[in-house]
């Protein structure tokens, strides 16, 4: 078990690097996942970077981040201390290829004890390298999972999975076999938004439209793997959404895009999950 109370997590991405802590009641939050850090810095993608329809948001921010070296420098300088003081923190990592995932693991290894878990992003749909493309070559990816387990034998490891690249229950099977503690289900899905002016935005789809997909993913994985810790992500906008995910087998709930609509959603769901420790 991850040992967070309530079992409610801010998802990597929308929550940035702790900015929302100024707007939410952190007593209602179990952990805060930082925006994914990649081995190399990721730079700006073209505007517009976000759009929305009635039931979805779409973004192509593309894992913009300063890269692991600058991130670790900031960590050493205490720039994230305010987050650690107020809640437990989950580190999210990514890379362009298998080698980068290993190299970033080696770089963060001396610091992982500060984090309650490390989540590996194997599913970002907003990249041309890495992300969900890695899981498509399942054997290589499975070996990577094993190597990361060896490098971080005592860390609570979460694999953030999507529904593209590989069947999600199969991907969860590889994670389970590699001895990882859990999975985060699911990441955004590739989508396309057409603006009224005809401009096209390709990006990751999130929002309420994702809920039936992520519910099914949690359901299928829980049916097969009773001991995997499952963080449910995708389309959680209310306490009743959270109840549905818990009912199909989630251990914890992750909230992302819903923060844009109302940051008070954390208090609503946090109170629902109450004194539960997971």
């Amino acid at each position: 078990m991850l040992g967070i109370r309530p079992p409610l997590i801010i998802a990597s991405g929308p929550g940035g690097y702790g900015e929302y802590l100024n707007l939410i009641n952190s007593k209602c939050l179990g952990a805060y996942t930082l925006k994914t850090v990649t081995y190399k810095p990721r730079s700006l993608t073209e505007a517009p970077r976000m759009a929305f329809g009635s039931f979805y948001l779409i973004n192509h921010i593309g894992l913009e981040n300063p890269g692991v070296d600058k991130f670790l420098e900031s960590l050493r300088l205490g720039r994230y201390d305010g987050i650690f003081k107020r809640t437990k923190v989950i580190l999210s990592l990514g890379g362009d290829d298998l080698k980068e995932y290993l190299k970033i693991t080696e770089k963060v290894k001396p610091h992982v004890d500060r984090f309650v878990a490390v989540e590996y992003n194997f599913s970002c749909p907003n990249v041309t390298k890495g992300g969900f493309l890695l899981t498509a070559k399942a054997d290589d990816w499975a070996r990577l999972l094993g190597r990361i387990r060896e490098l971080l034998p005592k860390t609570f490891l979460l694999a953030k999975l999507g529904i593209e690249g590989i069947l999600i229950e199969r991907a969860a099977g590889y994670v389970n076999e590699a001895g990882w503690e859990g999975v985060t289900l699911v990441n955004t899905v590739r989508g396309l938004h057409m603006n009224p002016d005809g401009r096209i935005l390709l990006g990751g789809l999130s929002g309420p439209i994702l809920k039936p997909i992520s519910l099914r993913a949690v359901y299928e994985v829980r049916k097969r793997y009773q001991n995997l810790y499952i963080v449910a992500a995708g389309g959680v906008y209310s306490a009743s959404d959270a109840r549905e995910f818990i009912a199909v087998g989630a251990n914890a709930i992750s909230v992302g895009s819903a923060l844009f609509k109302d940051p008070n959603v954390i208090e609503e769901i946090g109170k629902e999950l109450g004194g539960v420790v997971k």
Partner: peptide, 11 residues
């Protein structure tokens, strides 16, 4: 276009 207004989402 802003998603969050607080510097978190980078949009």
């Amino acid at each position: 276009y802003m998603g969050c207004g607080v510097g978190a989402c980078k949009s």
